[in-house]
Design a protein around this nucleic acid. Structure first.
Length: 328
DNA sequence: CGCATTTGACCTGCGC
DNA sequence: GCGCAGGTCAAATGCG
């Protein structure tokens, strides 16, 4: 894929700010006659209007280009996913004959997690390499059931990461402030550590699978160890609040560990009426599996709750209507 | 009254 | 099969 060639996301929408008024040459007052001044004012208004129209055309073109870019990226993503799916099914096809013996794969999450955790402890590595988790299929050299079971378990192993936070020893709340909203659903005293372990679920999005275990370090009681399982499928709540004020773009969230930002959706208010093809494209993008339903719901609720967005939208729409009426 | 937290009961896997 | 340990559930409780 040649993403690099496509990713010229210059976004220089305001690269040419309106400087018409500033760029106008200063005219000495004493040289300007009244008639001449009127004429010149008409001229500058005309020039200004032309420049505005030109600017509008430029922004429209830029917007169109970005929309096309987004479409291409979505297509490439879908294609990649299909390829991965194809590859996975091709490699796991040999195991299908043994499926009768593999019904236990749908074990409870608890046991899988325990296995995962023990493997971490044995490895002595706090952070599981994401690459290992994302390998859709590993080498298909071994054919026995145990190895295939192991492979499957590795594939569904959630991403686990650990964070150490220094707190007051007297503070027994076991709260780690990481910017997300957590709901405590359990607490347990474990055998290897006298301090209790608290269990949290991410409560920001109902569908978010991320869990967190928090326990004081056995060596240093002032250190709280938080173990995260899974990846957030929503933006960080604090960032959402921060973004709520700006109406420039709505950024879809990703996991906190991933540095890349999500796709940006542009509301094209400069076009009078989207073509049928474009409408279909937009609908297709919204219905596409790569943009999960809860994202759309969250976006909708966030946008409708945001008074700034409403005001900006209303202003944009009324401005557009006024412009259209002005042309008639 | 609604929501979050607490806490004992229960479930499941693992080792013996 | 049994006991242990970790993880989860859900009723009870507390708080704003």
């Amino acid at each position: 894929m040649e993403f690099t060639s496509l990713l010229n996301t210059s976004l220089d929408l305001n690269a040419k700010p309106l400087r018409i008024l500033d760029d106008r040459p200063m005219i000495p007052k004493q040289e300007v006659g009244s008639n001449l001044f009127e004429l010149r004012r008409d001229m500058t208004v005309k020039e200004e209007r032309d420049a505005l129209i030109e600017e509008l055309n430029r922004v429209t073109a830029e917007n169109k280009r970005l929309t096309e870019l987004l479409t291409v990226m979505c297509e490439n993503c879908t294609e990649l996913r299909n390829q991965l799916l194809e590859y996975t099914t091709k490699n796991s096809g040999g195991d299908n004959n043994n499926n009768n013996n593999n019904n236990n794969i749908n074990n409870t999450a608890a046991s899988k997690k325990r296995k995962a955790e023990s493997s971490i402890n044995n490895g002595g590595n706090n952070n599981i390499d994401e690459k290992n988790n994302n390998t859709g299929a590993s080498e298909s050299s071994s054919s026995d059931e145990d190895s295939s079971k192991k492979r499957r378990e590795e594939n569904i192993k959630p991403k686990i990461s650990r964070t150490c936070v220094r707190t007051e020893v007297s503070d027994t709340s076991l709260i780690v402030k990481d910017g997300y909203q957590w709901r405590k659903y359990g607490q347990k005293v474990t055998r290897d550590n006298p301090s209790p372990r608290a269990y949290f679920k991410c409560s920001f999005a109902p569908t978010c699978p991320v869990k967190k275990k928090v326990q004081r370090s056995i060596e240093d009681q002032s250190i709280v160890v938080a173990t995260y399982e899974g990846e957030h499928n929503h933006p960080q709540p604090s960032k959402v609040e921060a973004n709520a004020g700006s109406n420039k773009a709505m950024t879809l969230g990703t996991a906190p560990s991933s540095s890349s930002s999500g796709p940006t959706i542009t509301l094209d208010l400069t076009k009078s009426k989207p073509s049928h093809e474009e409408t279909r494209n937009i609908r297709g993008k919204l219905d596409a599996p790569e943009l999960p339903h809860y994202f759309v719901e969250q976006m909708a609720s966030t946008l409708t709750k945001d008074p700034n967005f409403k005001a900006a939208l209303a202003a944009a729409i009324t401005g557009k209507f006024l412009r259209q009426n002005g042309k008639m």
